[in-house]
Amino acid sequence: MLSSQDIEFFITVADSRSLAAAARKLNVTPPSVSQRLQNIERKLGVKLIDRNARLTSLTTEGEVLASKGQQLLKDLEHLTQDVSDKKLAISGELKLVSSLGFGEKHIGPLAAEFQSLYPSLRIELFLSDIPKWSAHNSPDIMFYIGHLQDSALKRIVLSKNRRLLLASPEYLKSAPPLDEPQDLELHRCIALRENDEDATMWRLTHIDTQRETSVRVVPVLSSNVSRVTKNWCIDGQGIIQRSEWDVKEELKTGKLVRVLPEYQLQEADIVALLSSDQFHRSQKVSAFLDYVKQKLPARL
């Protein structure tokens, strides 16, 4: 029978590129990792890791153990919290994932504020231009902006958000006319490559007629970092589409202006994604989620 320590050990191995990398994480020698892994495989009577390749990969049984084991550990943590006299104490580890720009500007500061309120809590924030939910090492909360493909996750809207087409006044002074979406093909366009979205297909809907138009732009500049693309736009390098929360200050100061304002882009609500429903969340997850819902609107 596997212990919780066995499961924690295997999840670390599953989340590592090699047994040597797992040994470094666990601060032990590679032979000891290999020996303990073999003991676990003997307990179960199945092979969990394919060691034929230079980099380890999980067998089908290994995939099941990593995925189910992660949930078992979370359930065990929740059970411990439920029967503990300190149920309301916010402690342990909280794992967060967020898109790069939004996480840097908003989730990072909110996480630091929250941790200062609960010193026994450890928060790990992972930022990525392509935030994904990992079955082997799933976060407690993932903050996401844009179209959501994985409908199995619980989705909580934190704030409504829309995307805008923008340019600098300096760029528009010498740019070709821009009256219809098709005119974008004659302009310098800047693409932000994030969330595995098609960054060069811009879809616009006329606000009054609801007529939809799709334009395939050929970006002269592209990046996976939103701050870089926004700075290019401010410097007069071309047209971008950005979330409204990220350009409020630039619109206010006139550094950027909206183009084709009679058209709207696809909405991109700011959401929190969780694997569990409200009745099965740990106290720390619920508390941080409530904190973000309370503080975030004032920051946007």
Rank of each mutant, 00 (worst) to 15 (best):
L125K: 05
L76P: 00
W133D: 05
G69M: 07
G236N: 04
P169Q: 02
K295Q: 13
D208P: 07
Q264G: 08
G62P: 03
D75Q: 01
C233W: 01
E180A: 07
F126S: 15
L125Y: 10
E93T: 14
F288C: 06
H106S: 10
L164S: 09
R258M: 11
M142R: 01
I40C: 12
R42K: 10
L273H: 05
Q210M: 12
L94E: 09
K68Q: 14
Q283I: 07
L153E: 09
E262R: 03
K248R: 15
A199I: 03
S116W: 00
I190Y: 02
L204Y: 12
L192M: 07
L164A: 08
Y171K: 04
Q71I: 14
K160D: 12
I123P: 01
A199Y: 01
L221Q: 13
L127K: 13
L2F: 14
L251G: 00
P30E: 08
V46K: 12
Q5V: 00
V259N: 00
P219G: 09
L164W: 06
A152P: 07
K293Y: 04
Y118A: 02
G92F: 07
S32V: 00
A112G: 06
E124F: 10
S286A: 15
K230I: 15
T229H: 07
Q266S: 02
L165H: 02
E77K: 13
F126N: 15
T253G: 04
L148Q: 14
L164T: 01
I190G: 05
K86H: 06
K154G: 06
W245T: 10
E244G: 02
A111S: 15
E250F: 05
L165K: 11
Q266A: 01
S84N: 10
D269H: 09
P219C: 03
V28H: 02
D140C: 02
Q5H: 06
I123N: 10
F279W: 04
H280E: 14
K43T: 15
S120A: 14
L273R: 12
G45E: 05
T80E: 15
E63W: 07
N39E: 03
G254S: 02
S3D: 13
N195P: 11
L158P: 06
D85F: 05
Y171P: 05
K74Q: 13
S134T: 02
T59Y: 05
A14W: 05
I40K: 08
I130Y: 15
